[in-house]
Design a protein around this nucleic acid. Structure first.
Length: 446
RNA sequence: GGAGGCGUAGCCAAGUGGUAAGGCAGCGGUCUGCAAAAUCGUUAUCCGGCAGUUCAAAUCUGCCCGCCUCCUCCA
């Protein structure tokens, strides 16, 4: 039995999909105005794992993830860059895939974009107005938050308490301060579309309601995103969709914890973020993935160079045991390991626990040299999306020549000479690993 | 002010009533000319503090201390 922590009710419950063998999930994607940072990486690794595990357990998963390709940030950045906003967003989508492919995130079934769903968005807004949940003012359209009785149910807050916080926009057009924009009237020559309310563009939240409705229907199984999306984004999505349909939008609301730097939230405004590609210059992409998996997805995770380097060492332990060959094929009990893995993952996708099984398996494989452990290990790693490829490191000819000279010195038992060559090789950034009568050269990661 | 989370070995991190997973580092052994790499073994009488419930608590209750997030765009 799979248990999932549902943020709507703040507890773990048994996972039951609407349709027997299918899971429909929608994960909020990125606003494409810049390169992705490792916070994004964590989010999409988390949901990639959920998706992969559900598939492993026999579900057919339909996975939708949007791109927000029109919003203030994109427009502002495009102005700074003196480039067309849609060129910017298109470019960043390509960059997104480059990063996510590197960390082995399975592609979503559909990546809907705001700019290609304007008619759906407009029609959604029209229905909300018709139902009396939204109103238009001077070309803007706002959601009338007080008309939706469940407003605040996901983030567990009351309208009155939020006003006390008093950090809401002061905007004369709104009837009530917490009302939010569904449609924004065009500002001087900004990117805009025709609508019943004049030229303009969609507000942020409406896209997810309109697009999830289009691809997954009124109610779907899992809605995911970062912890920071709970309010206002997901709260507003619920208001829009459930206000319109009077049905639950999603049965399970799942949110991943933040990546922190020095115990503070990593964010662009604090300027303490690392992009995915910066990190991948330092370590193997799978080390980054493993780093996330070592901590449960709902917990905050502190990022540091030291920690990620430790993780690469753990990763090499796994990769090494995958390279073992000439293994025995005696019958061994492999099922116990598989069951432990499944029970860990069944428990709200507890990858930290699941990895303990993986490492036990590595140890068992090293000890017994039995191929059946290796087969299972490969199976479990693929569920976790850890793809280990035997990289052909290109070793420069001169390094090989040095190593060969050293090997001759070893045969001659000329240890002084041999050590000298080894020093030269390591100075060049390589290490020689000796075995009985041969050697291997590996590149040392800086 | 309102809502929520976290505090477990040197570091990272699971564990939510039955007596502390796993990783990294450290230590000891194997291998090696010596190393490195690899490998095997080992490493918390104890879970922020105090009180309480219980036969039994890291796990439940109360209070306290420390840290973080959300309430504005944000994965």
């Amino acid at each position: 039995m799979i248990q999932v922590y549902n943020n709507l009710i703040h507890k773990k419950t048994e996972f039951k999909s609407l349709k027997k063998d299918t899971v429909n999930m929608y994960v909020c994607g990125v606003t494409v105005y810049d390169l992705c940072h490792i916070g994004h990486a964590r989010a999409y690794v988390s949901f990639d794992i959920i998706r992969r595990y559900l598939e492993y357990r026999g579900y057919k998963v339909k996975y939708i993830q949007n791109f927000t390709d029109v919003d203030d940030k994109i427009i502002n950045r495009a102005i700074e860059n003196k480039e067309d906003p849609l060129d910017l967003s298109t470019r960043m989508i390509d960059e997104y895939f480059l990063d996510m492919d590197a960390i082995n995130i399975k592609r979503a079934d559909i990546y809907p974009k705001v700019t290609t769903h304007i008619p759906e968005i407009i029609s959604f807004i029209e229905k909300l107005i018709k139902k009396g949940l939204a109103y238009s003012v001077d070309g803007d359209v706002y959601y009338d938050v007080r008309k939706f009785k469940d407003y605040g149910k996901l983030s567990n807050r009351k309208l009155a308490d939020m006003q006390a916080g008093a950090r809401v926009d002061i905007n004369d057009k709104k009837v009530y301060p917490l009302d939010f924009a569904l449609w924004k009237a065009e500002k001087e020559n900004e990117l805009s579309w025709d609508s019943p309310w004049g030229k303009g563009r969609p507000g942020w939240h409406i896209e997810c309601s309109a697009m999830s409705m289009k691809y997954l229907g009124a109610t779907f199984d899992i809605h995911g995103g970062g912890h920071d999306l709970i309010f206002p984004h997901h709260e507003n999505e619920i208001a829009q969709t459930e206000g319109l349909t009077d049905k639950p939008m999603a049965n399970y609301w799942v949110h991943n914890g933040f990546v922190r730097i020095n115990d503070e939230k990593m964010s662009k405004s604090l300027d303490n973020f690392f992009t995915i590609r910066e990190v991948l210059k330092q370590v193997d992409p799978m080390a980054l993935r493993l780093f996330f998996l070592m901590t449960h997805y709902r917990m905050p995770i502190n990022y540091s160079d030291t920690d990620i380097i430790e993780t690469s060492k753990a990763l090499s332990r796994i990769s090494h045991s995958l390279t073992l060959n000439d293994l025995k094929d005696d019958a061994v009990d492999v099922e116990t390991y598989r069951q432990e893995f499944v029970s860990a993952m069944d428990d709200d996708f507890n990858t930290a626990r699941a990895l303990a099984v993986v490492f036990d398996l590595v140890k068992q494989l090293n000890k017994t040299l039995n191929i059946n452990y290796q087969i299972l290990l490969k199976e479990l790693l693929s569920v976790l999306g850890i793809k280990i490829e035997q990289k052909e490191e290109s070793i420069p000819k001169e390094i090989i020549a040095l190593a060969e000279k050293r090997q001759q010195a070893r045969i001659d038992k000329n240890w002084a000479k041999s050590d000298e060559y080894r020093d030269q090789i390591s100075a060049a950034g390589f290490a020689v690993k000796d075995s009985k009568d041969s050697f291997e050269i590996i590149k040392i990661n800086a």
